[in-house]
């Protein structure tokens, strides 16, 4: 991708040896806990509807058909893995190559490796402990700290998300010099998408940079509008059973106590697609096979995806993702 003819890998061979050792550690961990390793396809005729995730596309030629098929590269193996669970699989894990368009940076490579796993019968809390065990094993970290999304906004920004007005959020953003990110037509209310964008901005710039500096921290109960595929909390349906791990400025893992209701899942897909249309993006084809599987019944479970490359950056104290990937995007 560069104009030079540098053929060398972006990671040192020494790093790749360590990468292999850590992957082996992880496989051993799951084997001890009777979690089955699976492989699912990278290609799919449908994809995620997320507003902020773009899948790469490819064209498939079938020798027995004149029609070419559009296929998406997976952004995560979530739907196929859940289809396995619906079909009766036990707890499963996968170390999968994933692809996301329009993401290149210090912590982003368009093609990267996710460790994704699902534990049958686990709650959000028990899965958090499971993730923590892996971090302690690989990074030798102390037990993680646990805090809710709402508590962080109170602590770092003095914003109580339960009662804060849209006007207050906008005035805080203006005061912090983010006036260019506030909707220009703002009068007194923000749309759900606009509000989430500002909350994500404040979280990224004013919270994430300050948390998890000396030990991993897990942030729980993201707002319902950012629930993704997580169940809403029974105690407080304004928040979700979604969590994220952060350590040393790195977003490491995102997990859910999984939404299993087909009708609610369909509503969320539709909401996503509506949001996409609102901001001028094309809606995405909904994965009907995944929804059919949910109809059959997803066993009660919790699941999480952990960025292996970022875990390696932390384990090997590397500042750039390219240093832990054999050939990063710039070395192709």
């Amino acid at each position: 991708m560069t104009n030079s003819l540098n053929w060398r890998p972006s990671a040192s061979i020494d790093c790749l040896i360590k990468r292999n050792q850590i992957l082996r550690q992880i496989r051993d961990y799951f084997s001890r806990h009777n979690v089955l390793e699976v492989e699912t396809p990278t290609l799919s005729p449908s994809t995620v509807t997320d507003l902020h995730l773009e899948a790469m596309e490819t064209l498939h030629t079938n020798p027995l058909s004149v029609k070419k098929t559009h296929l998406y590269l997976q952004t995560s193996p979530e739907y196929y893995m859940k289809r396995l669970l619906c079909a009766g699989a036990p707890s499963i894990f996968q170390i999968a190559k994933c692809f996301r368009d329009d993401e290149v940076g210090r912590y982003h490579n368009p093609e990267f490796t996710l460790l994704e796993w699902y534990r049958l019968g686990f709650s959000m809390e028990s899965l958090i402990e499971d993730v923590d065990s892996i971090l302690r094993l690989v990074l030798d970290t102390p037990h993680c700290e646990k805090v809710s999304y709402g508590e962080l906004f109170i602590k770092y920004l003095d914003i109580d998300l339960k009662c804060v007005s849209d006007e207050k959020i906008v005035s805080i953003c203006n005061d912090l010099g983010y006036e260019n990110l506030v909707p220009t037509h703002f009068s007194n209310t923000l749309s759900i998408v606009e509000k989430d964008t500002l909350l994500q901005l404040l979280f990224c710039e004013k919270i994430e940079t300050q948390i998890g500096t000396d030990k991993p921290i897990v942030v729980t109960h993201f707002p319902a509008s950012q629930a993704s595929l997580a169940k809403l909390s029974e105690a407080d349906p304004s928040v979700s059973q979604r969590f994220e791990f952060y350590y040393k400025g790195v977003e490491l893992a995102n997990g859910f106590e999984e939404l299993s209701e087909e009708s609610e899942q369909r509503v969320r897909f539709d909401l996503d697609n509506n949001a996409r249309v609102q901001v001028g993006l094309a809606p995405k084809p909904i994965d009907e096979k995944f929804l059919n599987a949910l109809k059959e019944g997803l066993p009660s479970c919790a699941g999480v995806a952990l960025g292996i490359d970022r875990l390696l950056m932390l384990a090997l104290d590397k500042k750039q993702i390219r240093e832990v990937i054999s050939f990063d995007f710039g070395a192709l």
Partner: peptide
């Protein structure tokens, strides 16, 4: 610098020098 939460909006954290006042600042 490209900054993006896994499930959220992507941002660019940009370091800028104002040419007249010569001030360096970060803008998102």
């Amino acid at each position: 610098e490209y900054v993006k939460p896994g499930k959220g909006q992507a941002f660019n954290r940009v370091k800028i020098r104002k040419l007249i006042s010569n001030k360096v600042l970060e803008k998102t």
